[in-house]
Amino acid sequence: MTSDLDPTHNKELSARTAELSDAVGTSVVTLQAQFLGSRGERQQAQARGRLAVLRRSAGFTPEQHPLALQDVLDALDPALRQEDLGRGDAASPTERAAFDAMTLFALHMQSATEPMHVRGRSFGSAMSLLRSRSESGSLKPRFDALLAARDQRSRLTHARSLITLLRGEKIGFDYGMFARDLRTLASPHRAGVLLRWGRDFATPPRRSPEGTSSDSAAASALPATPSA
């Protein structure tokens, strides 16, 4: 039997998390474009309904909301490999990562008027940008609590709370990367993800010559919707 400590298995896991990142990233770009109205009123209404269902599942488990998991799996493009699907009555780690990323994305998009999926910006970098805009002294302790959480459900509870703050400041991040990180956190090598999040949080956003955050400038430069 292989383990996540085996180099061959680790390489395979890396390839599969990259596939998960692509699938979630493609799916949220489509949902985002539909929600923001660039695909027509009919698709906008459908996206609003789908995101409302997913949003109500944010913070829960796939087992608690099996219909939402079904909706997530149906939305993924491309679909998950057979070997990444769960067996029996429990969701697989990959299914959980996709479910958590997409339900939190739905929470992030609530009442949004601009993209909250921003390609290339990590969760930690988004939190760093929020920190640069906030005068609250509680933000770092809240982020530290996420990094120190002993289990995935506690970590996601903290992430859900922080994402509501990001939503309030209209700061987005890359949900494909986030799904990949959540899947990696389910393996013994999770420390690397937490290290990256902590490093990104501690790195101040770069400033352009005009004094505008380069992270914000990069986000605005990204296309809000992909070509169909």
Rank of each mutant, 00 (worst) to 15 (best):
T113Y: 03
V72A: 08
T164Q: 14
S57Y: 07
D215W: 06
V193A: 07
P62F: 00
G211L: 00
T103N: 14
R160E: 14
H189A: 15
T103Q: 07
R131E: 04
M177Y: 14
L5N: 06
N10T: 00
F143S: 03
L107D: 01
S208G: 14
G192I: 04
R153H: 13
A33P: 04
R96W: 05
T17G: 04
S14P: 00
A33E: 12
L73K: 11
D151W: 01
R16E: 09
L69F: 00
L36I: 05
R155S: 15
L36C: 06
R56A: 15
A52V: 02
M116Q: 14
G25S: 10
G88C: 08
P62G: 11
T212M: 12
E135N: 15
A91M: 07
T61H: 07
E135L: 05
M116V: 01
R180L: 04
S214F: 10
A186T: 09
D74E: 09
T26C: 10
T157M: 13
P188C: 08
T103A: 08
E63Q: 12
A148G: 06
R56Y: 13
F105G: 04
A217E: 14
D22I: 13
S187C: 04
Q110A: 06
K140I: 01
L85W: 10
T184G: 07
G37L: 01
A75L: 15
L195P: 00
L80G: 10
A58K: 09
A179H: 01
L5D: 12
R81D: 11
S134G: 08
S3K: 07
S161I: 00
L194P: 02
H117K: 06
M177F: 13
L194S: 09
T94H: 08
P209V: 13
L222C: 12
G59P: 02
L129M: 06
L69E: 02
G168I: 01
Q44H: 08
P115G: 12
R196I: 08
Y175W: 00
A98L: 05
E95I: 00
L147F: 12
V28S: 10
D6F: 03
L104H: 10
F60V: 02
D200Y: 02
L166K: 09
G86Y: 04
E63W: 05
F173T: 08
A149C: 10
L107A: 12
L20N: 03
D200P: 00
H65Q: 15
R39I: 03
G120H: 07
R42I: 05
S92T: 07
A97H: 11
S208D: 13
L222W: 10
A186W: 02
L194W: 05
L139H: 14
L156K: 08
G192T: 14
E12A: 10
R155Y: 03
P188V: 03
M102L: 13
S21C: 11
R206G: 14
D77G: 05
A224P: 08
D174A: 14
A58P: 08
L76W: 00
L5E: 05
A149Q: 09
L156A: 10
A218E: 08
R160Y: 11
A18Q: 14
L166S: 12
A179E: 01
A47P: 05
T113D: 09
A202R: 13
